[in-house]
Design a protein around this nucleic acid. Structure first.
Lengths: 237, 237
DNA sequence: TGTGCAGCACTGGTATACAAGCGTTGGTCG
DNA sequence: CGACCAACGCTTGTATACCAGTGCTGCACA
């Protein structure tokens, strides 16, 4: 038995906390993150905070400017495209490897998942969690579950764009329906339909970006090489 | 102009040094890495060393066992498979997006690259660098150059397996020939041949693994959950 | 009133000190 | 001779101190 021990170090806690807040937009793009302030707020020293920020910077979720500051990165449409390309490539390739005999446990899990996705008035974050689990489950069917973690690490910008899109639309129904269609096609062994529906499903994010850039341009990166700067603000003691 | 400043901090230097030594097998799988020893050897403090190790651990190139030690990870055949799957998915998907009109600059670069690959008695590490540049160039042709960095981060185990295979075979010619065939097919617009040759080319690594595991089992991971332990050794002062 | 410059507050990068835990090791006791 | 156990040395995790660099701020001066 090779149970991988995941010690709950402060670094892991801080990393997961910050990553969640960035992805859920609780920390909006452009927010200044001071290592000292974060450390004080989280009740730890700078060390675990700093090490977490380094990992987040490696994922592109934050940007570190030495001697200036650390900032939640703005959503970069180029990175969204890169992540979408990678994700689509992986998920379509996985569909090609789905065996004729499906793992019944995974199939059952996926059915339960899809039912929950269509619960009326579902919370947006809960839908996202189910969405992630659904796509992860599809990769499981093809025996490529472990490749999912790499995709997850790479698609931070993509996830933020999708959240922005869903918040604006305020409905998850079309996506849940597409999930059902993909699932049905996989179960039926209809590979071409599964591929085509998946491709359409994954490319939906592109429909939103341009409109979103008009609504909230401050959340998106520009290519003018500008960098954030510190601002002194009045503090009410 | 958005020139991304890449400050040459100690952390960056240490990270790149360690990563290179792990990938080139100069630091063989299983090697114990002491933060203190590395810091002393590299003439820096523990901080940049430690931060580099955290990044390498995130890539799976080293494993950190709290209060026990840090070790160069053994080549994990499962991870090799995962990375191969991801890489193949990305590179084949990129071939689908190659436009009819190729960027002449990139094409010229690729030609020069291929000539160098076939230089007699080429050094193995130089061949690897050209190999990487070749595949990166193919992604450039399809406009997905940035996705390469994600693939690079994910394929550390794969690269080490390929180096082991090439060291054993002691010839790079077949791979250079495959590169030429892929390139010719792309230039000729023969997508099916490009895809098929690429697939064969990328899957060659599987041919070696089983044989290598017999030759040098200590370089490969096992699934028995065993972890490295420290060994006190006699030192001749 | 406008302008320039010096100081200052804050940043992340690095070095160092301390804490907690594991595994060996060597001695002691049965 | 064998088994246990306590102490030690090394590990990584965390906290803290110091450093160089950056950009704002407010005063001095024209």
């Amino acid at each position: 038995m090779a149970a991988p021990p995941r010690p709950r170090t402060n670094r892991r806690v801080v990393y997961e906390t910050l990553r969640r807040k960035v992805l859920t937009l609780e920390l909006p793009p452009g927010t200044a993150l001071s290592e000292n302030e974060l450390a004080a707020a989280l009740g730890v020293s700078r060390t675990p905070v700093r090490e977490s920020l380094i990992l987040l910077a490696d994922e592109g979720l934050v940007q570190v400017f030495p001697q200036v500051g650390t900032f939640v990165s703005r959503v970069d449409p180029d990175r969204v495209r890169d992540a979408q390309f990678l994700r689509e490539a992986v998920e379509l390739a996985a569909l090609d490897d789905v065996p004729a005999e499906l793992d019944p446990d995974v199939v059952a899990e996926l059915r339960t998942n899809l039912d929950r996705q269509r619960a009326p008035g579902i919370d947006l974050e809960e839908f996202f969690a189910l969405d992630e689990a659904f796509h992860h489950g599809l990769l499981q069917l093809s025996g490529h579950a472990r490749a999912w973690s790499t995709v997850v690490s790479a698609k931070g910008h993509l996830d933020r764009a999708r959240r922005l899109g869903l918040k604006e639309k305020n409905t998850t129904t079309p996506f849940a329906d597409q999930h059902v269609e993909i699932f049905d096609a996989v179960v039926a062994g209809d590979l071409p339909r599964a591929r085509e529906t998946m491709r359409t499903h994954l490319r939906a994010v592109f429909d939103d970006i341009e409109r979103l850039r008009e609504h909230a341009p401050e959340l998106f990166a520009t290519d003018d090489g500008s960098v954030p700067v510190r601002r002194n603000v009045v503090v009410w003691e």
